[in-house]
């Protein structure tokens, strides 16, 4: 075989197996900025709004810098692209509003709502029952648990619920159990975090003490089996942030001031120093960056990393809570009283 052919095959192998277009050719530059403390925003019905919430702000904006709705969070907020529930700590009823602020439904059940993707849930008053509601706020089903719910993750078709003492339970869209797992490797069954890939093929669970483990389940036939397990050196005893990339090739979880990224195919873990307590993560998957926001003191650090863990950009802002989202044209971020766009510009 000639050197030419060998070189060609090596390059081809590199492109197929290792090489990928990373976004290092791009940089982020400030785009628009909105001061939510001073500017008044009129409600303007429109489509394509992006929901945001950080600090005590929430609302909707369009990518070209038109904040459609901005208001203050009463006690908690559940919102998605189609509407929101802005609720007080104690309510006679939960009121559903559309992105233009119009009231279109009400829910008399006690509890706190939260939305995951396009699905809407209600956690009951003592955190032991979960209900799913339709967009109008009607309860579709309620499922009770023998101990407190510690975390919930959902796809369009499934739901994984972590509990204090009963492990995880996976439910379908009617609330029927399809899979369960009770960790019995440690002296407590407490689940500290759950994540479900968008296609239901993988589940990530953080559970137990001495050891505290990260477990990756993948779907096999009608059930799931553990394909990766990792003991965590430092144990945390509160709800952990974890999730999957949009393409399902990566799972992530917070670990002190680090983001741990698990390649679900190669089963490799990489550490990303996010520079504080992790708040938001945006990961599309292969061929994209990992975007994070993290808080330390009253400083928010926005970072972008390539998949090898190398930091591509860093941007800091004052604030204690943050917002992060992205589309093809750039990154949308919020901290303090400011909502802003970082435009993606080719170097």
């Amino acid at each position: 075989m000639s050197m030419y052919k060998i070189s060609f095959l090596l390059i081809l192998a590199y492109v197929v197996l290792i090489g990928r277009p990373v976004e290092q050719e791009y940089s982020l530059e400030p785009g628009w900025i909105s001061d939510l403390s001073t500017e008044e925003y009129v409600t303007a019905p429109a489509s394509g709004e992006v929901p945001f919430t950080f600090s005590d702000h929430f609302g909707y904006f369009s990518p070209d810098n038109a904040v459609m709705l901005h208001d203050k969070v009463l006690y908690g907020i559940a919102l998605d692209e189609k509407g929101f529930i802005n609720y007080s700590s104690i309510n006679a009823a939960l009121v559903l509003q559309s992105p233009d602020g119009m009231v279109y439904g009400r829910l008399d059940d006690a509890g706190y709502p939260f939305f995951i993707g396009s699905r809407r849930f209600l956690l009951n008053s003592d955190g032991t029952a979960l209900s799913e509601m339709n967009p109008d706020g009607e309860i579709l089903w309620t499922n009770r648990f023998s101990s407190m719910i510690t975390d919930v993750s959902a796809s369009l078709t499934s739901l994984v619920v972590g509990t204090l003492n009963s492990g995880i339970r996976m439910l379908d869209t009617s609330g029927k159990e399809t899979f369960s797992y009770k960790p019995e490797f440690s002296r407590t069954n407490t689940v500290y975090g759950t994540a479900l890939s968008s296609d239901d093929s993988s589940i990530l669970v953080i559970s137990g003490l001495d050891p505290q483990k990260v477990l990756l389940f993948t779907k096999k036939n009608s059930g799931y089996r553990i394909v990766f397990s990792m003991d965590l050196e430092h144990e945390y005893r509160f709800q952990r942030q974890c999730g999957f990339s949009v393409d399902g090739n990566f799972a992530y979880f917070d670990y002190g001031s680090y983001l741990f990224l698990l390649n679900t195919v190669r089963r490799e873990v990489k550490e990303f120093p996010v520079g504080g307590t992790l708040q938001r993560v945006v990961i599309a998957g292969l061929n994209d960056l990992v975007y994070t926001s993290a808080e330390t003191g009253d400083v928010i650090r926005f970072s972008g990393f390539d998949l090898d863990g190398d930091q591509i950009f860093r941007y800091t802002s004052r604030g204690r809570d943050s917002f992060l989202d992205k589309d093809a044209s750039g990154l949308y971020a919020g901290a303090g009283d400011y909502l802003f766009k970082l435009k993606k510009v080719k170097r």
């Binding site: 908690g76 559940a78 700590s89 939260f114 008053s125 955190g127 719910i149 975390d151």
Partner: peptide
């Protein structure tokens, strides 16, 4: 032993009707 807790510092991805709490085993 505290096995699970929630406070303003820990935050959480789902809301907490029990507010800030601690669980002791």
């Amino acid at each position: 032993e505290v096995v699970f807790y929630r406070s303003g510092e820990t935050g959480g991805e789902i809301p907490s009707p029990l507010g800030n709490f601690a669980v002791i085993q």
